[in-house]
Design a protein around this nucleic acid. Structure first.
Lengths: 233, 233
DNA sequence: CGTTTAATTGACCAGTATCAACAGGAGTGG
DNA sequence: CCACTCCTGTTGATACTGGTCAATTAAACG
C-alpha cells in the first residue's frame, strides 16, 4: 500500500523504529510558543512503531501529518486498537513511567515530540500549559468512554456505522472518506474480525447506504440512514 | 438488599436525587487543604442518581463511603457501566460543560463535591492542584484503555476473571470479596448478559477456583488459576 | 504478466444472547 | 410462626450473531 513497505518490515509484533529530528517553532501565544520550543520533529514510516508497550514514556507527541494507531496486545496475539491518531491529535502522555500501549504508524507520518520532563517543568511553571494538558486528557477520556459503550453494547452494524461517521468527521470531504487503515485495523478497533467488517461493509453497500469504489474509498450515499444505524438515536 | 430500597425507587432510568450538605476540611498539605476547603459532603441512597447524563457538570466528586457507578445508556435501554467508584475514587470531571454519563449509588454512599468553577480557580492558582488533577485523569484514562481491551477482545470467562481480580484488589480482605453490586451491574460493566455472568460464576465454582456462599460473597480458592483465566498472562 | 498480499464471499461452528422455568431469600401480612 | 409475594439469581433449551476455516477475487508490486 505504501512505497516503503518493502524496505522495512511492517509487522506489528516487532515494529522498526525510524526517526529523524529537527527543531521547529510555530508560535501562537506565550504558552504555545514555550511548548513548541521544546518540540522536535520525527517521521515514521508506514507500519513502523514509534514506541512499544512497556517502553519508557519519555515523550509526548503531536501528529503533524499521516495517521498512527495506539494499541494493546494480549499474550496470544489478540489486539485492541485504542485510537487512530490524525494530524493535530496528541498522544503518549501517561500516568505511569512507561507506555501501557504501543504507537505505530498506519501511513507514513510525522510527529512532533516533547520531552516529558521538560513538559512537566513547563506545566509546573505555566498554568496555561497544565490547563491545556488537562483539557486534552479529559477529551481523550470522554472519547474512551464513548468507545466503552461501543465495544460493550453495540452490534457489528452499529459499530461500523459509528466508525464511518467518526472517520467522516475527520475527513476533509463532507460525504466521502479515504480510509487510511486496513480492514484488520478496523476490526481491531471495533472488536470484530476482518470477515465481519467486510461483510458489514458489503451489507451497507447492498442497502445503498454507502458506495465502495475500492477498499479504501467510502462514499456516503445516505448519512441519515448511517446515523440511524449507529444505535445512538 | 438495602433497607431503604423500599422508600425510594431504585430504577436506573429515572433516579431520585437525595442529598444533604455540610462543610468539611481535612488538611494534609497546602493544596490538599485548599481543595478540602471548597468541598461539601453529600450522601446518596442506594439506587439513587447523583446526576444524569446531560446534566450540567458543575461539580467534581470524591467518594468517602459506599460504592457508586457511572454509566451510559443507548436509547433502546442497553447500558454500559463505565466504572465502579469506591472510597477514595474521584469522578465527574469532564471536558464538556455537561456530564456524558450518569452517576448513581450502588449502595448507600457519601461523596465530597467540589465546585468545578472553584476547582478551576484553585488549579489556575496552584500548580500542585492542576498537576494532581492531571495525574488522576491520566490514571483514569489508563484504566479506560485497559477496559477497551477487555470489552473488545476478551471472552466472558476472561472478563469475569479480570473483574474478580480487580474487585479483590479493592477488597479489604486478601482472598475474599463482598460484591456490592448486582449481577445486572456486573453484566453491564463487562458487556455481557446477567445469564452469562451467572453461568460463568457457576463454572468458576465448579472448577473450584472460587467458592460462592451466597450471591454477594466470593471466596478466592485459587488466585493463580484466576490470573491464568484473565487472558493477560 | 506472474507473484504476493489484502479483501471478499461462502459454509459451517461456537460463544453468547434470548426466552422461559425454577429456586432461594427477604419482607409482608395473617 | 407460617404462607405468600416479590425480587434476584440460577439453570435449561434454543436461537442467532459473529467467529472460524477455506476458497475466490481483486489489487499492488516487481
Amino acid at each position: 500500500m505504501q512505497t516503503n513497505l518493502a524496505i522495512v518490515p511492517p509487522i506489528s509484533g516487532a515494529p522498526n523504529f525510524v526517526g529523524r529530528l529537527q527543531v521547529i517553532s510555530t508560535a501562537r501565544d506565550v504558552s504555545a510558543d514555550a511548548l513548541e520550543a521544546i518540540g522536535t520533529v520525527q517521521s515514521v514510516r508506514a507500519g513502523c512503531g514509534l514506541y512499544a508497550e512497556g517502553d519508557a514514556a519519555g515523550y509526548w507527541y503531536r501528529v503533524t501529518s499521516g495517521v498512527l494507531r495506539t494499541c494493546k496486545l494480549l499474550p496470544d496475539g489478540r489486539r485492541q486498537i485504542d485510537d487512530f491518531l490524525f494530524p493535530g491529535d496528541f498522544f503518549g502522555l501517561e500516568a505511569r513511567p512507561d507506555h501501557s500501549f504501543a504507537a505505530e504508524a498506519v501511513t507514513g507520518a510525522a510527529v512532533v515530540r516533547y520531552s516529558r520532563t521538560r513538559l512537566d517543568l513547563l506545566a509546573a511553571d505555566d498554568v496555561c500549559v497544565s490547563a491545556r494538558l488537562l483539557q486534552l486528557t479529559l477529551k481523550q477520556l470522554g472519547k474512551a468512554h464513548e468507545r466503552l459503550l461501543l465495544l460493550g453494547r453495540k452490534t457489528a452494524g452499529e459499530k461500523l456505522a459509528s466508525f464511518l461517521l467518526e472517520m467522516l468527521d475527520r475527513s476533509p470531504a463532507l460525504d466521502s472518506i479515504d480510509l487510511p487503515m486496513s480492514r484488520t485495523d478496523i476490526a481491531d478497533y471495533l472488536g470484530l474480525t476482518i470477515e465481519t467488517v467486510s461483510r458489514t461493509f458489503s451489507s451497507l453497500k447492498q442497502n445503498e447506504v454507502v458506495a465502495l469504489p475500492n477498499a479504501q474509498r467510502v462514499i456516503i450515499l445516505d448519512r441519515d440512514a448511517l446515523e440511524e444505524l449507529t444505535g445512538d438515536e
